[in-house]
């Protein structure tokens, strides 16, 4: 594997690994197996008895229009967050890469939202869009648009997308800026000598060379939108109004803890685990490719 000489010891490596393995087994592997097992059971509402039902929970899940709706909401939400936050960050990163002075000041002023918890980010934006006292809602009222995300599902979706994208701008910005700064100046200078204007240079040289970074960020943003935004949804909309902002992760929580449908919730967990598995493989394939450069 690697040329490092190693220590030989009978029990020490196990002692060193023990804490990590224990935590992993007790809080990760066991619950995961439990979820898989429960996905094949149906429990009566009082939790007194359960019965093995093979794939019934999954069949029910796929036949449930609510699950399909939730999948669509998740896709809309993820697409919105990814496009909005990556677009804005790319714009800002390109501008920051271009300025000679002050790039580090801008960096400092743009990265701090990374530290804000998703739930808090959601509350900040919810307050700005509050139909009675929010300033954005007030501004919209002035131009004749009546905003109320508590009633209108599309507006609720837009609100959570904005909050989630806002928090992610800092992350994307940092990686785009690092990617931009890694592009050799000589290429851009050569294009400039050949007479390419800034806009053309961006589309024909910078943007293609940035594609590894963009692809990496695409995966990261999708993972973020799918799994790390529970706090935003829970704090801002509770999946509503109706089920218009119920994402897959929120539905697992809702069906399990509020609906008390253990089998259904477990089946959804299993589906999500499969999804994370696929996304992780994609991410690692990308990393392997990067190593070969």
């Amino acid at each position: 594997m690697h040329p490092i000489p190693v220590f030989r010891h009978r029990w020490l490596p196990w002692a060193l690994l023990a804490p990590q393995l224990m935590v992993t087994l007790v809080f990760f592997v066991w619950p995961a197996l439990e979820a898989i097992y429960q996905a094949f059971l149906v429990q009566d509402p009082f939790g007194m008895s359960s019965r093995f039902v093979w794939f019934d929970n999954f069949i029910q899940l796929f036949e449930d229009p609510k699950y399909f709706e939730s999948l669509v909401s998740t896709l809309v939400f993820s697409a919105g967050v990814t496009v909005l936050s990556m677009g804005l960050s790319l714009l800002l990163a390109v501008m920051a890469d271009g300025v000679v002075r002050g790039a580090s000041v801008y960096k400092m002023l743009l990265v701090w939202p990374y530290a804000v918890a998703p739930a808090i980010a959601g509350i900040l934006w919810m307050f700005m869009f509050d139909p009675t006292i929010g300033i954005v809602a007030y501004a919209l009222e002035q131009i004749g648009y009546h905003w109320n995300h508590r009633v209108n599902g599309d507006e609720a979706m837009l609100l959570v997308v904005i909050a989630a994208a806002w928090k992610q701008i800092s992350y994307n910005f940092l990686f785009f800026l690092a990617g931009l700064q890694a592009i050799p100046r000589s290429l851009i200078e050569a294009a400039a000598i050949d007479g390419a204007r800034p806009f053309k240079r961006f589309w024909t040289i910078v943007f293609p060379l940035l594609s590894p970074t963009s692809f990496f960020l695409l995966v990261v943003n999708i993972v973020y939108a799918f799994f790390d935004t529970f706090g935003i949804i829970h704090a801002v909309t509770h999946g509503g109004p109706g089920t218009s902002t119920t994402t897959l992760v929120y539905k697992v929580y809702h069906d399990g803890f509020i609906g008390l449908d253990l089998g259904g919730s477990a089946a959804q967990s299993v589906m999500l685990m499969l999804l994370v598995g696929v996304l992780t493989v994609v991410q690692f394939r990308y990393i392997e490719r990067k190593v070969q450069y």
């Binding site: 992993t24 619950p31 995961a32 439990e34 429960q38 697992v252 967990s269 994370v276």
Partner: peptide, 18 residues
């Protein structure tokens, strides 16, 4: 493997274990 199992996807069983 733990990389693939964020808390959000295995909430119920983890809660039970705890």
């Amino acid at each position: 493997i733990t990389l693939m199992l964020p808390v959000e996807v295995r909430i119920m069983p983890t809660f039970e274990v705890v």
